[in-house]
Nucleic acid binder design. Sequence first.
DNA 1: CTGCGACTAGACTGACCAGTCTAGTTCCCC
DNA 2: GGGGAACTAGACTGGTCAGTCTAGTCGCAG
Lengths: 188, 188
Amino acid sequence: MSMLHRERVLRAATSSFLARGYGSSVDDIARRAGVAKQTVYQHFANKEELFKAVAGDLAKRVLVKLEGAGNENEVRQSLIRFAVEYRKRALGAQGIATFRTLVPEVPRFRAVARDMYANTAGEMVRRLAEFLKETLDAPDPAFSAEMLMSMLAGVDRMKRLFAVLPGPEGETARATRIVDLFLKAHQP
Amino acid sequence: MSMLHRERVLRAATSSFLARGYGSSVDDIARRAGVAKQTVYQHFANKEELFKAVAGDLAKRVLVKLEGAGNENEVRQSLIRFAVEYRKRALGAQGIATFRTLVPEVPRFRAVARDMYANTAGEMVRRLAEFLKETLDAPDPAFSAEMLMSMLAGVDRMKRLFAVLPGPEGETARATRIVDLFLKAHQP
DNA sequence: CTGCGACTAGACTGACCAGTCTAGTTCCCC
DNA sequence: GGGGAACTAGACTGGTCAGTCTAGTCGCAG
């Protein structure tokens, strides 16, 4: 029973925090979980601990695979696949809601926030850098990785965060255009 | 008297909202302004209106000038000056605090948020696109402008938002490196 | 059948807060 | 000197919320 209820609470808390931020009430979370408020406190010491648990779960959902490649065209294809997938996670409704929920609470949870960054965007940069080092022989792969990630989710994330509708360009087309610009900047 | 007090309230509200988000209490803002709570309500119908006024003021502080240029090296220098200045505003303590304050409240003020984007980052993209069209003859200047803005404040903004310390590289050096990468991608 | 641990509904405390109201002050304009 | 607009301190209402407490239910292990 115990773990089952814990899961229910965690799921309800996730959707509640995503929808209304840290301001969501514990009463509301308990109601959504179909559980008594006391049960919430049986599994989590207080609201902050519950939030940390939710935040940890949420952060993990951003990670994207990045497969190796042989010739030059395969590198491009791999990067495009990566780009499309990463944008799907980072710019999708859930990614944006996650961002909106976590960002304002960072001052309250500085250490946790740092870890979360390291396990998500930071980890992504590391993997991408490794890939670029092997395939493109980039002189500063970490820098290159950061630039590609920035182009994939810089202004476009801002637009979504500020409720601005994205342009008419298709997702794949935009990802491809960005990867090609990136590759052009990395020609020998 | 009237305007003087209005200003005091606005300034106090700005620093309060920046420090604690929309959750700041009106009592607190009035106290910081050295003013009775009633006076706040004499100038702003309610807390939401006060927040909108503050948000409008805050947003305007991001805009950066972009001066014209003649030969190729001057273009580079102009872009570097722009890059350094833009990063100073977008990534400085106040820029980050502004971001943290506004982002979670967007759902509450969708229309205002859209306008704010249009007047700041959006306007910036337009000006930059105009500049790139004239100086670099870029085929899609709006896209190029978005990519430069993304590289200037993509991953680096994320790092600051998540309390991750930025690397040891100096601000000017990083801005220069980004501009050079951008220019390399736009060679004919 | 006994005792225990997880659960339930719901009441309760203490705190905080937006917004209103009262009663009185200060200052300026007519 | 009279009137009005902006101001003051502070009390008050009605609401929300985190976290605790009570009293009781349910199922299971010994």
